[in-house]
Design a protein around this nucleic acid. Sequence first.
DNA 1: AACATCAAATGACTTTCAGTCATAAATTAT
DNA 2: ATAATTTATGACTGAAAGTCATTTGATGTT
Lengths: 234, 234
Amino acid sequence: MVSNLGIQERKEREKEHRREEIVDAAQKVFFDKGLQAATMDEIAETAELSKGTLYIYYKSKEDVYLAVVMRGLQILHDMFESRIRSEGQVVKAMIGLQETYYEFFKTHRNHFRMLHYLQTPQFHRQVSDEMKQSCAVVNKKMWDLVIALIQRGIDESILVSHLNAAELGIFLWSGATQLMIRIDTESERWQMGMKIDLERVLRVSNLLMLESIMTPDARRDNEPLLHEILPRNS
Amino acid sequence: MVSNLGIQERKEREKEHRREEIVDAAQKVFFDKGLQAATMDEIAETAELSKGTLYIYYKSKEDVYLAVVMRGLQILHDMFESRIRSEGQVVKAMIGLQETYYEFFKTHRNHFRMLHYLQTPQFHRQVSDEMKQSCAVVNKKMWDLVIALIQRGIDESILVSHLNAAELGIFLWSGATQLMIRIDTESERWQMGMKIDLERVLRVSNLLMLESIMTPDARRDNEPLLHEILPRNS
DNA sequence: AACATCAAATGACTTTCAGTCATAAATTAT
DNA sequence: ATAATTTATGACTGAAAGTCATTTGATGTT
């Protein structure tokens, strides 16, 4: 027992590495097959491990799934952060956030789907408390970015309404999210039946929601900026 | 073979009755256990039938689930219809629709959840085409009600925007739906962490969205009506 | 009434998959 | 070299969706 401290550390690193390898494999399988159709056996095979080993590192399939979700949240957080940092004006930054969320949706479609699964009540059952906790931390980190920006908008008298910063965040977030979900799953249905371009609806919706919580002054000051976003027709 | 026509008819009726009995049982079990945890064995037991019989009347668990969803859609449709019929003014009727949707959410929470499950991509896999078709019909019937009202609003120059009636419908619908989903699943989380009342957010959100697509004239004319909805504070 | 035909119902069986656990392999400590 | 401990394994269990050969029962025919 000469250098057991160093060994301890190395083992920790290796363990962490294994956990990441498992998430790599899980992500691949979840993205390919979807949450339901993905099996632990296939994840094990992809990770070149036995199924039993997966259960040493994660308590359940749902926990593995949450590990993938956390990666998505982290990506979204990083995208938000870099976009907000590079923009001083609140209104521009708000529009930037909306665009960034949509960009995340387009370029990380599978991660977006994973995040959406999270909302269905069927999970949160076999999920371990630790995992729920970790997830909440990443989620809050991202959410705090958004709320801080909105708060700045309120402080600068650019944004106003009967709602506080966090509530405004939820308001903006909800409309956008639901529309993206529809774009993801029902786009053709709407395009066929009626002649509806959901992506345009999303753009207009984002604009309407943002305008609806801006002060008249701010709306006037940012008019050219806001009208830039609008689609060509009408 | 004297009166085989009458017998044929009676058999049809009995068959239809069985189907309804199965949906009764399925609804009970789905509502109690949730979509995932509900088993076909338990549905069979509740219906006092064998599992094999269920599969004579429905092709899969998902089909049975869709039969329950259709009931929810029908309830919502009926609620919408009676509310719209009793209101001539477009703005009042629009507010009525928003209130009705929320009322549906509160009084038929389980049906709302079933509808929400529909959005997850994990289904639509083992669902039979007939069932999908039937579901689309009921859905369209309800949707047409909403769109017709919005179209009336546009025709009367009360509503206006870059979107057509159907697109406006999706816009209003999406924000409300996503907020209700959150109220259903994450209400405490938001209430604890930050001090957020999601139901108030929903009310304000509905108002903001509606106002954002009203013409300035209409907004002025309906000012007292709109401000009635607002929560007390601020 | 006895028999034939057809439809409806059954439940034992198959398959698939999450999760477990006794055993084996590998690694570390003595 | 050997014991102790940690890590990995895959055969096994239980649960649940879906199937199908067989039975039950109803309708029609002689």
